[in-house]
């Protein structure tokens, strides 16, 4: 099938809304964490503190754009752009609703996997270019963690691919008309969830950052807008991850009564909130625990899931 490109309004609309959502997430996360920690969170700037994002942005824009003299200048500038670009382009394949989306092609899922893998370059390069021991440690952790969890992530969603018989995300959504894949692929969902948290380096699996040990890990030396790009890149990552989870396991835009786009947004929002809840509730594991858990538990479990799904699919359709 020939890849279908969405029209210009779709592209601009999605790009704008995704960036705005990512930016607003700064506020949402702080408010939600405050809610769960019995605080109020930012509530002073504008109604409900909504303009906090604006205030933060103004602050970031006006900060001195400082590059440490000991840093590798060009790589240092490049690193935050990579995470921002990869995360943003990831949204290209997300099927927001029937007819709403930027691009629709057969290997959408592979494209997503490829882009999330690319984003690790940002971490590695930032850590390397900063020429700072904490940043380098953070970059190393990021590389190892992303490379490891990529494996289980890929394996965990193969079940979904088998069930739907396609890498095209729209077809995967359509394949869930009879039931979301969360049911048959529960194990796959769990593995994918963990892997996606690790991939997006969110707490509790934010070992490359790990403030308590590494100051701020790979972005120790970053400030101003370059730090802002890492920051927004992270929220883009959350949004993308939620969207893909919704697409793969929760039937995408499918749902009764409401328009498909609303369903999709609603489900994604719940996904995002869950990500924030994870951060608010769970402690960070030790680095070795993370790796052990990945290779010794998630890999066999993923393979098992693949085996079982394959067997069931063969049995039913073979």
């Amino acid at each position: 099938m020939k890849p279908a490109l969405g029209d210009a309004t779709d592209i601009i609309g999605i790009l704008a809304s995704v960036i705005i959502v990512a930016a607003m997430l700064i506020w949402v996360e702080r408010r939600l964490l405050a809610l769960w920690q019995d605080r109020l969170g930012p509530n002073r700037v504008g109604p409900l503190g909504l303009m906090q994002v604006m205030a933060d942005m103004i602050k970031m824009f006006f900060k001195e754009d400082w590059i440490p003299p000991f840093a590798d200048r060009w790589v240092f500038v490049l690193a935050p752009c990579i995470v921002f670009i990869t995360m943003l382009t990831g949204f290209a394949v997300i099927p927001f609703a029937p007819g709403v989306g930027i691009i629709d092609f057969n290997f959408g899922l592979l494209y997503f996997l490829a882009l999330t893998s690319l984003s690790v370059y940002s971490i590695v390069l930032a850590g390397y270019a900063s020429n700072n021991k904490y940043a380098l440690l953070g970059g190393l952790r990021g590389a190892a963690q992303t490379v490891s969890y990529e494996v289980f992530m890929g394996i965990s969603i193969m079940g979904v691919v088998m069930l739907s018989g396609s890498f095209n995300l729209r077809e995967i959504v359509e394949a869930q008309r009879d039931g979301w894949f969360i049911g048959p692929q529960f194990l796959g969902f769990l593995i994918f969830l963990i892997a996606v948290v690790a991939e997006s380096r969110r707490a509790p699996l934010d070992l490359p950052e790990a403030e308590q040990e590494l100051v701020a890990g790979f972005h120790t030396e970053y400030s101003g807008m370059k730090f802002g790009m890492f920051f927004v890149g992270e929220y883009l990552g959350i949004t993308l991850s939620s969207a893909i989870i919704v697409t793969l396991f929760f039937g995408g835009w499918l749902g009764p009564w409401l328009p498909p786009l609303v369903w999709f947004c609603l489900k994604t929002a719940i996904g995002i909130i869950f990500f924030i809840l994870l951060r608010g509730a769970l402690p960070r594991p030790r680095y070795d625990q993370l790796m052990t858990f990945g290779w010794k538990f998630l890999l066999p479990a993923g393979l098992l899931n693949l085996l079982a799904t394959g067997a069931v699919v063969l049995a039913l359709h073979g």
């Binding site: 809610l35 509730a281 769970l282």
Partner: peptide, 22 residues
């Protein structure tokens, strides 16, 4: 226990904030 933590934290959605708005 991890799930329980998630649940316990989620329950705080319905707890009144301690913040005093100085």
């Amino acid at each position: 226990s991890q799930l329980r933590s998630l649940w316990e934290v989620l329950k705080h959605t319905f707890v009144k904030a301690d913040t005093i708005e100085y």
